[in-house]
Design a protein around this nucleic acid. Structure first.
Lengths: 346, 346
DNA sequence: CTGAAAGCGCTTACAG
DNA sequence: CTGAAAGCGCTTACAG
């Protein structure tokens, strides 16, 4: 019955009990040494250290979490839109960085704009008793998180704020950034500026659309619904809409595109008509190679690194017991002028 | 002392005990219902179901794992080079997909080509008792994993094979793909083809370099070390080396670049000298927008999606008890002809 | 079919 | 300073 035997096909790993036996001390003493409690006899401590090394003992994180007073699992959950897209991937990476420094592991998940998937993944995270969650939600009602919040799990919202829930959030000012981009085009002389944006049910998409609208209004320009599209979710979709607009009788002289994929599809459309030197374009979100296109792409860029860092720090502060009022951090965006947005109307 | 009370500042979550009390059955019966064991009286089962709903009970994954005979934690570890780069991010996403279908959570980590970080993160994963690991290793000696392997944790290597360890692996044939790319340039008429590659200590980089060498040899061409660089790790580094080569007395007429960032830096260098219509270029790895450059980029593309899927399936097969001999899956690459690789020497 | 007891691998609270 | 007992939230093995 000693744990040195292996009844299973798979060898069992050493436990604290094995360490205690080898070091000829009690379980509790091993626990003390492992957790760096100072009140241990030097000689015993060394025996324990040696036994730990010899057995290559690694404490079972699950068992530790189960028994600890604070029930910390040393894991956090990070739920983003799609970990394969550059925005989500960068955010994840930054959070991972901050977490690893603290010995915390990260459970990651992609929501794909699906409320159902969000619910599933949150449930899964809760079963794992993560210490906190950073989420770019797909859903539009976050009351369901209240229960877990009250159970002590902090949630930090990223990119999109919480709805019907009080929680910290970190994001860019989409409205202002979009207005800035459109105003930039107005200043270059454009009067007929198209908007192509992503799924209008997403808060950030709506804000970008509204930023476009208010910039037009401020410039005294009327909105022409024919050159406004806010339901584009693929590169091809953007390509088609942009092509249609450009081929119309009254084509736009400039585009503001509210999302990465939309920007790419629009570039393709403009390029295919050979109009890349006539039609202006400003895109939301920067991406690798944007500066290698011809003309290079003018964009409003989010400060993705800062968003991730601020969110991670906020989460860890909450986990460490920070109970100050929730905050809504707005991270500044930056207009990067590269050429495509400075083409005057012809 | 009932768990309905909350001595802590943070409310405690309902446990199976609470469910049992509310449903007026034993713990074991609740366990049976939750685990879909069939031998439960219909009426009791319903009482349990109702109690579970009412309390919004979620089983504690850690406690379950601790007690299960097989000790499954329902988590896997995914350790890749850098989750913010498109290759790693796509792989992660695919694995996540396959895992989520099975109710498995994914702990992700970036190794950044650091052996130390690899060791740390593997240790962390082992503490969490992950059921298996998919790893694109930074280290060049994987014996240290033997212990965990024997303890029943399957490892699937991705992108790079295991060294001094027997384990499954899934990757592209870097050597063959590179040779193909270089031969393509030879067939276009090039006799002076430069190689710019990433960190030569990485196995895949070495294979790409060797593929370049053997293609030259097959074509009866001599190697000129001046136009070979295999220690480039940044876009700027590639830019500088390419610029230097192009500015030399005997510049190359074509480039084969062994990695994404290197390709981008080389494009910048060629472009800045205004030679994008004279100098040919084939890159290893495809990327978004490669087809929007002028000329569009010819690349050898890895089938990232298949690599991820095959690795994930292999891991889950192992976790489910597959004990067949280890395999080394080679996923075919594809030469995508777009223009930059078909420019003849001038 | 149902339940009381034991125990997974640890930490806690309490004696000595 | 050290250790024996209890218990975290579950499943297992075993009676009834």
């Amino acid at each position: 019955m000693s744990s040195g035997q292996r009844p299973d096909p798979q060898m069992s790993r050493p436990t604290m009990k094995d360490v205690a036996a080898l070091a000829r001390v009690s379980l509790k003493t091993v626990s003390r040494v492992i957790n760096d409690e100072p009140t241990v006899n030097e000689e015993m401590a060394q025996r324990v250290q040696r036994a730990v090394k010899q057995l290559r003992f690694q404490p079972h994180a699950g068992a530790v979490a189960l028994r600890r007073r604070d029930r910390r699992s040393s894991t956090i959950g990070v739920l983003l839109e799609d970990l394969s897209n550059p925005f989500s991937a960068t955010i994840y990476r930054i959070i991972e960085e901050v977490a690893t420094e603290r010995g915390i592991s990260v459970l990651g998940g992609s929501l794909d704009e699906s409320t159902a998937r969000e619910h599933e993944l949150v449930t899964l995270m809760m079963r794992h008793r993560v210490d906190g969650v950073i989420i770019a939600p797909a859903s539009h009602d976050h009351q369901y998180l209240l229960r877990d919040q009250e159970a002590g799990v902090p949630f930090v919202f990223i990119d999109r704020g919480p709805v019907l829930l009080k929680a910290d959030s970190v994001r860019s000012d989409s409205h202002k950034a979009s207005a800035e981009a459109v105003t930039h085009l107005v200043n270059v002389g454009h009067r007929r500026i198209a908007y192509l944006g992503g799924d209008g049910s997403i808060a950030t998409s709506r804000e970008r659309h509204q930023g476009y609208m208010s910039a037009l209004k401020d410039a005294g320009l009327a909105v022409d619904e024919f050159i406004v599209a806010e339901d584009i979710v693929t590169i091809d979709g953007a390509y088609e809409r942009a092509t249609k607009m450009l081929a119309s009788e009254k084509p736009p002289t400039a585009f503001f595109t509210g999302q990465n994929l939309v920007t790419i599809g629009t570039v393709q459309a403009i390029r295919e008509m050979g109009k890349q030197r006539q039609i202006a374009l400003v895109g939301f979100d920067d991406f690798l190679l944007a500066d290698l296109l011809e003309p290079a792409l003018t964009v409003v860029a989010q400060d993705v690194v800062t968003i991730g860092k601020v969110a991670a720090r906020k989460l860890f502060a909450r986990i460490s017991g920070d109970v100050s009022p929730t905050t809504d951090e707005i991270i500044p965006t930056r207009l990067i002028v590269r050429g495509s947005g400075e083409i005057p109307p012809s």
